[in-house]
Design a binder for these strands. Structure first.
Lengths: 194, 194
DNA sequence: GCGAAAAACGAACGTTCGTGCTTTTTTCTG
DNA sequence: CAGAAAAAAGCACGAACGTTCGTTTTTCGC
């Protein structure tokens, strides 16, 4: 990897960390330059536009998310264990994000009314993630862990909701019961699916 | 109401509408002045600081929320019907917010890491809203609609999660199934509580 | 180690941001 | 209706925003 690509990576790493705290719009060229020890113009040249920086930041965050949440879970045996791994990894990952929260939750709210490539990218990746959950539930049905008439898309939607509830309780409300509540809700979701 | 207070009200009305679309931070003194036909300095004099404007915007939004969601529901007979009214009003109100989404959801993500009076105010009101839900569930237990050993705080947490899931599916994903999914999840929540 | 290519810098641009002042206009009260 | 009080405007400020451009420094292939 050449020097340029290396710096590029470093910038994106910092951008993801910063965005988790201040949101996508909060990642300003100036502050990002300061944090990386680069000049504004030097940093800017790597991306060509703020919009592109935002998309690349989301892309970098997605890579990390897949590597630490999705891929490990997909290595578990299909069925309820894999479903558990998905949710468990998700919650653990969210809690390990330093001071910040889940960048995707933050971006979802920030971009829901902002047409453009950043929104398009986020929606696409969220859709993929939703489908992974739904398919994983379907595999659990196939394995006999879940009842045959389960609505897997509804299951994915509900799982997603429980994560959002967890995120809200932990991040805004700073409720120490956030995680146990989320886990209780998840267990109930599993029971209803069996 | 004098002229001053009237203008004050008009500004806040516009601020709430604008914040629902662009977020709290997106409500800039300049754009707000343009939308209300005032000068920047003239508008600014009403609030003294941007921070105070944000708090007042949240306060105005809270008033509207209570008037169109909470109060009508509390006029229903205690029990499961009131619980239904809470969720129903909430979902309907969220869908009727014009182009924007729920300001509280947007602010929750925006302010979760931003220490200050705006955050404090939001957390306080969210806490109150959470308590209203939990107490309403308790009244349903008392009325015999819900089982006696129901964890009412968990119920409130779950209800909240389902709203967040609905909001996410509708606003970011623009999923036409968002509302039926949320309603299905809510019905399941009720069934589990009985 | 030389020279081309890539990377980073420094300075400036036009805007917009929130926030002070002072002055003018409008509203309310006696 | 006059005069006080309130409201709004006008103007300016320093800072930060994204972006452009020309120059300097660093990296890398030969």
């Amino acid at each position: 990897m050449g020097k340029g690509a290396e710096t590029h990576e470093t910038i994106l790493q910092e951008a993801v960390a910063l965005a988790s705290v201040a949101g996508l719009e909060g990642v300003t060229i100036g502050t990002l330059a300061t944090h990386t020890g680069l000049s504004k113009s030097g940093l800017f040249a790597h991306f060509g536009s703020k919009e592109n920086l935002q998309v690349e930041t989301l892309r970098a965050a997605t890579e990390r998310f897949v590597a630490s949440v999705v891929s490990p879970a997909l290595r578990k045996p299909a069925g309820i264990r894999r479903v558990r791994a998905l949710f468990d990894n998700w919650v653990k990952w969210s809690g390990s994000q330093g001071r910040g929260g889940c960048l995707f939750v933050a971006s979802a709210v920030e971009l829901d009314d902002q047409e453009g490539p950043a929104r398009d990218f986020l929606v696409e990746k969220q859709r993929e993630w939703f489908d992974v959950i739904a398919r994983t539930a379907q595999r659990a049905v196939d394995a006999g862990d879940f009842r045959p008439d389960l609505d897997c898309e509804q299951f994915a939607h509900d799982l997603y909701s429980h994560f959002l509830g967890y995120h809200h309780a932990r991040r805004l409300m700073r409720d120490p019961k956030a995680e146990p509540r989320a886990r209780a809700a998840f267990e109930q979701l599993l029971r209803n699916a069996q």
